[in-house]
Simulated assay, not measured.
Amino acid sequence: MLQEEYAKDKHYTLLKDDLHQTARALQDAYNNLENVVDPDLIDCYIYELNSVQMRYKFLLASIKKMELSQ
């Protein structure tokens, strides 16, 4: 039982760390998008931004689900 709780806590901590890293990546993508003028780079950063946003939403939902189950 104690090992299960430890595994859940460790998984929760990893999710939170990943969420913080993703938030930084999201900010970087916004900054990059604001600073480019080349159409190809604009497309690139739009795709990156969408990808990082989807990852952020997934991680946030996973954390909320884990918090509700505790």
Rank of each mutant, 00 (worst) to 15 (best):
D28K: 12
D38R: 12
A29L: 01
M1E: 02
Q21F: 02
M54Q: 15
H20S: 14
I42V: 07
R55M: 12
K65C: 05
K57I: 13
N32G: 03
Q3M: 12
E5I: 10
D9C: 08
N50P: 10
E48G: 13
V36F: 00
Y45F: 03
Q3H: 13
Y6M: 04
Y30C: 10
E67N: 04
K64L: 14
K8M: 07
M66Y: 02
V37W: 13
L2I: 12
Q21I: 09
M54P: 01
Y56C: 11
E34D: 10
M1Q: 08
Y47F: 13
E67K: 08
Q21K: 08
I63V: 09
V37N: 15
K16S: 02
H11E: 09
D18A: 12
D43F: 08
S51F: 07
N32P: 05
N31H: 04
V52D: 04
C44G: 15
D9A: 15
A29F: 00
C44W: 15
L60F: 13
E5D: 10
D28P: 07
E67V: 02
Q27L: 03
K16E: 08
D9Y: 06
I63D: 06
A25W: 01
Q53H: 03
L68H: 15
K64P: 01
Q3Y: 14
L33A: 01
K64E: 14
L59N: 02
E67T: 03
E34Q: 15
M1G: 05
Y45H: 01
L19W: 03
Y12D: 05
E4G: 01
I63A: 00
S69H: 01
L41D: 13
D43I: 13
D17C: 01
A29D: 03
H11S: 07
M66E: 05
K64I: 11
L15I: 03
E48L: 11
K57N: 15
S69I: 09
Y12R: 04
L2T: 11
R24M: 10
L68Y: 12
T13L: 02
T22Q: 02
N32A: 09
L68I: 14
N35L: 09
C44Q: 15
K57P: 05
T13E: 12
A7T: 09
I42E: 10
A29W: 00
L26A: 06
R55Y: 08
D40H: 14
L59T: 00
H11N: 05
Q27A: 09
L49C: 03
L14H: 05
D28C: 08
R24P: 00
L33D: 01
F58S: 14
K16C: 01
L19N: 05
N31K: 00
M66C: 07
Q70S: 13
M54N: 14
Q70N: 11
S51W: 09
L15C: 00
E48M: 13
A23H: 10
P39W: 03
D18V: 08
E34W: 14
N32V: 07
A61M: 05
L19Q: 07
M66S: 07
I42K: 06
Y12S: 09
